[in-house]
Amino acid sequence: MYYLSEDLFFPPVHLAHSSGIVGFGGDLSPERLQLAYNSGIFPWFEDGEPITWWSPNPRMVLFLDELIISKSMRNVLNRKLFRVTFNQNFREIISNCQNVKRDGQNGTWITNDMIEAYCKLNELGIAKSVEVWQDDELVGGLYGVDLGHIFCGESMFSLVSNASKVAFIALVNQLKNENYKLLDCQVYNSHLESLGCREIERDEFMNILRNHF
């Protein structure tokens, strides 16, 4: 296990523990976060724990052409029940992701320090959000880190049924239009799988991350 100092450094991801943990410590400065994401690494920890850096193997991703939109979801989209905006209310999106209740979880990994760190990334144009509105009320959305060829999704929320799916689909369509390689979803969950995401080997993910020209 690596314990990071103030130096801007991460060990190579192939040295990660079998759990996916790359190391502990360091800080959440914009410079370190940018280095982390460009190195295939992201922070994930709970309040009161040391900053923990991860690069899981396998990695959950969506190849954009593999997006699955169910018949019922197509009906929702065709009815135009929601309005979608991009990068208009980043702080409100990440705050809702922190506060929304999730099945099987007692709390959230999005600490107040994480919110401030990602809001700084948003000010730099690196972290971005998708907002979903219903009758001018924010009802869902997501945020993540934009690497220019890969979008690293961090978290999403819904206050009404299907709102987060609408955000996800809108993001994928935008990424396809801008010729992104894939959407990084980090770790497996069944909801993401239902949308077409799948696990790939970390080496394959790292090759895509590094070879983007």
Rank of each mutant, 00 (worst) to 15 (best):
D184A: 12
R102I: 01
V187G: 04
F213M: 08
Y118F: 15
F82M: 12
D203Q: 14
Q134R: 15
P11N: 08
L15G: 04
E123Y: 01
A16D: 03
G144P: 07
I93W: 06
E31K: 11
V172T: 00
E116Q: 13
D103W: 05
L183I: 01
N189K: 02
S70Q: 09
L159K: 15
D184T: 07
S72L: 09
V166Y: 13
P58S: 03
N87P: 12
W54M: 04
W53H: 01
V22N: 06
L28M: 12
I51V: 08
Q186L: 06
L159M: 13
E31N: 07
F86V: 12
K101L: 14
S164Q: 09
L171P: 04
F86A: 10
K80F: 06
D27H: 09
A117H: 07
P30S: 10
G23K: 09
K71Y: 06
M1S: 13
F213D: 11
E178N: 08
S164I: 11
S161D: 06
L171I: 07
S18F: 08
S194V: 02
E92Q: 13
F42S: 03
N57K: 02
Q105C: 09
K101C: 10
G25T: 09
F151V: 02
V130I: 15
S39T: 10
P11M: 11
N179L: 11
M206L: 15
D103C: 04
F157T: 05
R91A: 14
W109G: 00
F86Y: 13
S70F: 05
S164H: 06
Y37N: 05
L147C: 05
V132T: 11
F205R: 02
A36C: 03
D135K: 15
N75K: 15
D65E: 15
S129H: 09
F213T: 12
N177L: 11
V132M: 10
F90M: 11
A127Q: 06
V76A: 07
E92Y: 09
V160S: 07
G20K: 00
E154P: 13
W44I: 07
R210M: 11
G48K: 04
T52W: 12
G104M: 02
G141R: 03
D27R: 13
G141F: 04
G140M: 01
G144Q: 03
F42T: 02
G48L: 04
L8Q: 03
G40E: 06
E92P: 09
L67Y: 03
L159V: 07
N57F: 02
H17V: 06
A127H: 12
I110Q: 00
P43K: 01
F90R: 08
K176F: 08
D146V: 00
L147P: 00
I51H: 00
E193A: 08
K128V: 08
